[in-house]
Simulated assay, not measured.
Amino acid sequence: MGTKQTDIPKQYRPGWLESLDGRYGLARELRARFDEVCNDLGGADRLSYMQRSLVERGLWLEYWLAQQEQALSKGGDFDVGKWVQAANSLQGIYSRLGLERRQRDVPDLAQYLAAKAGEAG
């Protein structure tokens, strides 16, 4: 069994979010953000693989941008060109996913009760 990571990878790779050790706050925070974005889009169960992939990529870029901004605030190395390129990429991903919240498909009370009755019978 592989060792879980405690920080995000320096370069994006698919599945990085699941590779994070859930005992650490960073992993819990990023997974909560993933769930929040998916819920805003109507729920992870309604998203295609490609949409979930874009959400994961967006979160990685969001974190990377925040790290760069922290470095800048502390007087560290900061490449404005890379930052702008990443910010534009993040904007493109989020624009592609959609910026408006989407409602989940929720059954009305009669449908819910009928489904429950079907489970019991």
Rank of each mutant, 00 (worst) to 15 (best):
W60I: 14
L72R: 15
E29H: 04
L59R: 08
D79W: 04
A120I: 13
A44K: 15
W60S: 08
G15D: 09
P14M: 07
G15M: 07
N88H: 03
Y112H: 14
Y94A: 00
C38V: 01
S19L: 04
A44V: 09
K82Y: 01
R102F: 09
L72I: 00
I8P: 11
R96N: 04
R31C: 02
G2Y: 03
R52A: 07
E36F: 06
L17E: 07
S73D: 06
R52D: 08
W83D: 00
P9M: 06
P14Y: 07
K10T: 07
Q85H: 04
K74D: 10
R102N: 10
S73M: 01
A87C: 00
G81K: 03
E18I: 02
E69N: 01
L90F: 08
P9S: 03
R57K: 15
W60C: 14
Q68A: 12
L90S: 10
Q91P: 00
G92R: 11
A115K: 06
A32I: 01
W16M: 05
D45P: 01
F78D: 00
Y49S: 11
R101N: 05
Q11D: 11
R23A: 05
A110K: 15
P107Q: 10
R52C: 11
Q103N: 11
D40V: 03
R46L: 13
Q103G: 02
D105G: 10
G92P: 09
Q85M: 09
E36K: 12
P14C: 01
T6K: 08
F34W: 14
T3P: 01
S48G: 15
E29W: 01
Q91R: 10
W64V: 11
A27H: 01
G81R: 04
R23T: 05
T3W: 10
V84H: 04
D7N: 04
R102T: 11
L90P: 05
A110N: 08
K4A: 09
A120E: 13
Y112T: 14
P14Q: 08
G81T: 12
L113D: 10
R104K: 14
V55Q: 09
L72T: 00
E36S: 08
R46Q: 15
I93V: 11
K74C: 01
L65C: 12
L99I: 05
Q111G: 13
G118E: 13
Q103Y: 03
G25D: 02
G118V: 02
L72S: 03
L65F: 08
L61D: 07
A117V: 06
R104F: 07
R52K: 15
Q85D: 06
K4P: 00
V37R: 13
M1P: 02
Q5S: 09
A27D: 02
L17W: 02
R96D: 08
E62R: 12
D40P: 02
A32M: 08
G98K: 06
G43I: 11
E18R: 15
P107W: 04
L90D: 06
A87V: 00
S73Y: 00
Q67C: 05
D7F: 09
D105V: 08
K4V: 03
L97S: 12
S19G: 02
S48W: 12
Y112D: 09
G15V: 06
E69Y: 00
K4E: 08
K4S: 09
L26N: 03
L26M: 01
Q51H: 12
I93L: 12
D7C: 07
D45R: 14
G43H: 12
W60F: 14
D45F: 13
A120D: 08
R13E: 12
P14W: 01
P107G: 07
D45A: 14
K116A: 15
A117G: 02
E18Y: 00
